[in-house]
């Protein structure tokens, strides 16, 4: 074990020129897990707007960071995850040229990581992310670009959590195409509506295509029911329909619509008296996600 620690220090000292704190932090986590970890990638998506992708990816990042190191990445130009985690709404000015767009262009994300809390970091976005497809075209950037940019930090985190826009676009396909040897996963968001119901097979097809062409080890972690009204009569029918159509795919946890959850965007996570209430349904979901991500370790 001592040998192992010394080796780690050496590797860290020469592997990157980061500060000593980083070495210490990695050490404590490495000792805890016995090995140096690689981040698992989880992309939240659905090509239907307003299904709680941003809130769910944000809350999941927060909960995972209680015990493990998390990097959240905002791949949506709306910057909702960015605002959710930083409480900053003037994203165009505050994060001008400090976003995931520049990180992809620079092929290195490190300069663009901002600290949210002890174990939670974020690469923000703003409206300029709309220019990503054009940039890819002009500079011959391919769908492995996010993977390239993340390469230097893959071992600094246990989880990389990515929020995507509600569209079939480069912003969605690029994270799905990002490989990690610890596993890449997609969480399909579903708000129980007809519109979202018909968006599910389309999103599953995007997952399949990304898997087939760019990231063979990508897995669908599951379909997450969110924003569900406790009183809606059609809930049960929707649950059964999803179970019949996609057996075993849905998460057992259902995230119900809650005012306290919605208010997280105003009150944040620090000193929030209703935090426990706001997170109620997300705690069992994150446990399920962890379990599925562990079971579904890719082979080879």
């Amino acid at each position: 074990m001592i040998c192992f620690i010394i080796l780690l220090v050496i590797v860290d000292k020469y592997g990157d020129n980061n500060c000593f704190i980083n070495v210490k932090m990695k050490l404590s986590i490495s000792i805890k897990w016995g090995v140096k970890m690689t981040a698992k990638i989880v992309t939240f998506g659905i090509s239907k707007g307003g299904c709680s992708k941003s809130v769910s990816s944000g809350v999941t990042s927060y909960l995972l960071s209680k015990e493990e190191r998390v990097l959240a990445i905002d791949m949506d130009g709306q910057g909702n995850l960015t605002s959710f985690l930083t409480n900053e709404y003037d994203i165009c000015n505050v994060f001008e040229e400090k976003t995931i767009l520049e990180a992809i262009q620079d092929k290195d994300v490190r300069k663009y990581i901002i600290k949210i809390s002890e174990n939670l970091d974020l690469v923000p976005s703003n409206d300029f992310l709309a220019t990503l497809p054009r940039m890819m075209y002009r500079q011959g950037i391919k769908f492995d670009a996010l993977q390239v940019a993340l390469e230097p930090v893959m071992e600094d985190y246990d989880w990389i959590i990515i929020d995507t826009p509600p569209a079939l676009s480069e912003h969605t396909v690029m994270p799905l195409s990002t490989y990690s040897k610890a596993g890449s996963f997609a969480v399909v968001m579903f708000d129980g509506s007809m519109f979202a119901y018909y968006a599910i097979p389309k999103f599953l097809e995007i997952i399949e295509a990304s898997k087939e062409r760019y990231n063979p080890s990508l897995k669908t972690a599951g379909i997450l029911f969110s924003l569900i009204d406790s009183r809606a009569k059609e809930n049960e029918v929707m649950e059964e329909s999803i179970e019949e159509e996609y057996p075993g795919l849905r998460f057992q946890t259902i995230i119900k619509r809650k005012a306290a959850t919605r208010r997280l965007a105003i009150s944040g996570f620090e000193e929030n008296p209703e935090l426990t209430n706001a997170l109620e349904y997300y705690i069992p979901f994150v446990e399920e996600l962890k379990k599925r991500a562990k079971q579904e370790q890719p082979q080879g």
């Binding site: 062409r213 063979p216 080879g300």
Partner: peptide, 11 residues
């Protein structure tokens, strides 16, 4: 199972 041992396009 077979495709996950190979690389993209093998499926």
């Amino acid at each position: 199972n077979i495709a996950s041992r190979g690389e993209k396009g093998d499926k």
